[in-house]
Amino acid sequence: MNHFWIILIGALVGSSCSILGCFLVLRKMSMIGDAISHSVLPGIVIAFLISGSRESLVMMFGAAAIGLVTVFLIQMFQNSGVQADASIGVVFTALFAVGVVLISLYTRQVDLDLDCVLYGEIAYAPWDMLHFGGTSIGPKAVWGVGASFLLNILVISLFYKQFKISTFDPALAASLGIPVVFFHYLLMSLVSISTVASFESVGAILVVGMIIVPAATAYLLTDKLSRMIMISIILSIVSSLLGYYVAYLLDASISGTMVAVTGVLFLVALFFSPKHGVLIKKWSRRKLLQQN
């Protein structure tokens, strides 16, 4: 049963992250996912210190708020003349440092393991069961991640058209009267919420990996946004399945292998994608030359 729960958690994290990842990759903001996943740390710690528990919604909101603050600060420095990637780097490292200092200051009150936060241990997630009326109804992580997955699906499908236009052509979207800035921040808060929901059970590295890699792989395979989202979800599910199996064989970190498998899938797509693959392109060029 534990096998099933771990794979389910991995697949849920993967799907909910890769939906958002598609938009981030297309908007050339992939590193913002990385930044948010690191900078929510102080939000988690502060929320934990205030509420005193790990499972409350307070934590979710605290982290989502910090995620928005991150994006806002990045935008602000960028507007004042700092290069985009440098302002990302300054902001997330500063916030992460604040988080680490807070953890070490309140190390007795805060029951958070820094190692666990960074590279996570999905293997322990199934033991943390949620009880409802005396009977256990599955691991807590499944409910948390599942809820954020549903939220993402709901918001993205409700505003699919708006997200699509403001991703591909923000100027057109603005001229059509779509509040581009609002959707920007909506997307960012979804990223923060998904990050926080998956953070503790699987670690930042799997979250960042699942945001960027399956979406980028899907980007190589198709030219249609709806298909890109579907493909990236399928890829993330496949990599959590395969990743778990490989980790089981090697007795290694599950999050690590899941990310490594997404990397292998990306490599395959990079070379053999029917339309954009490096080898396929080379081969068709050679065929063209021979015909001439």
Binding site: D85, I205, A216, S255, G263
Partner: peptide, 17 residues
């Protein structure tokens, strides 16, 4: 930016393994 992200996470993932 995506290439950076891919390499970062995949290498780190392999490192953790």
């Amino acid at each position: 930016d995506s290439a950076l992200g891919i390499i970062l996470t995949v290498f780190f993932g392999v490192g953790i393994v």
